[in-house]
Computed example of a mutant assay.
Amino acid sequence: MTTMFVIGTVICALSTLICWAMTAIRNHPADSSIVSLAAIELYLVVYGVYAGIRQAMGASIDGEAWEFWGYIIFALMLPVGVFIWAMVDKSRWSNLVMSFVGLVVFVMIYRMEEIWWGTVM
């Protein structure tokens, strides 16, 4: 496991837990849920820059490069899209939908690590 994967796992887990808690206690999108989405987005930007530098320095990807970068691009769009949707919906369930970003991005970074290294463990 790489350090970036562990950091991403922690951020995604915290975001999911925060959003679940806010689903239980808020009737509208909570600021803490929105901030947790921003934390995931910031992590993904840093991960993308890190991966770009790593690849530019000559590190090879075990899998397909187009698949790896496709995951990063889609992962970067996910929190933004869900944030826009939450601002339009403005119900309790926006927090629940925001919680799925953490779960989906976790699976995506797991897969990105598999593509890059061939295995996560």
Rank of each mutant, 00 (worst) to 15 (best):
Y71L: 15
R54F: 11
S60K: 07
G58Q: 01
G58C: 06
L44S: 10
W69Q: 05
V97H: 10
N95Q: 04
A59K: 13
D89Y: 10
D89C: 10
V10H: 02
I40K: 03
V35S: 07
N95R: 02
S91G: 06
S91T: 12
V10Q: 04
R92C: 05
R54V: 05
E114R: 15
C19I: 00
L42N: 04
L17A: 11
V120Q: 00
S99H: 03
S94I: 07
I84P: 01
F74P: 04
L37G: 04
I40C: 05
A13V: 14
G118L: 06
P29K: 01
I84L: 12
M87Y: 08
V45Y: 13
M87K: 13
G102V: 03
M87F: 11
V104P: 02
M4W: 13
V35R: 12
E41G: 11
Y110C: 05
A56N: 10
L103H: 00
R54N: 09
V88P: 02
V35I: 15
M1P: 11
N95V: 07
R111Y: 10
L17S: 04
A65N: 06
A38H: 08
F83D: 07
G102M: 03
W85D: 09
G52D: 04
Y43W: 07
V120E: 05
M22H: 02
W93Q: 10
G48I: 11
D62Y: 15
M121L: 14
K90V: 07
M4G: 00
I40A: 04
L76G: 08
A65F: 12
V35E: 10
G8T: 07
L37E: 08
G48Y: 09
N95P: 09
I34S: 09
M4I: 12
W93I: 09
W69L: 10
M98D: 00
N27V: 03
L17C: 10
G52Y: 00
G8K: 03
M98G: 02
M4F: 09
P79C: 06
S36A: 14
L17E: 09
D89H: 03
A59R: 12
L78D: 00
F100A: 08
E64M: 12
A39H: 05
V80K: 11
M98E: 01
F68D: 03
W66D: 14
L103S: 06
V10A: 08
L42H: 09
P79G: 03
V101Q: 00
I18P: 02
M57P: 06
L37A: 06
A59P: 01
Y110Q: 12
V120N: 09
S15C: 06
D31V: 15
A86G: 10
S94R: 08
E114Y: 15
A65S: 14
W69A: 03
V46G: 06
V101M: 04
F106M: 13
V97S: 11
V107D: 13
I7W: 08
L42C: 14
I7P: 13
A24P: 09
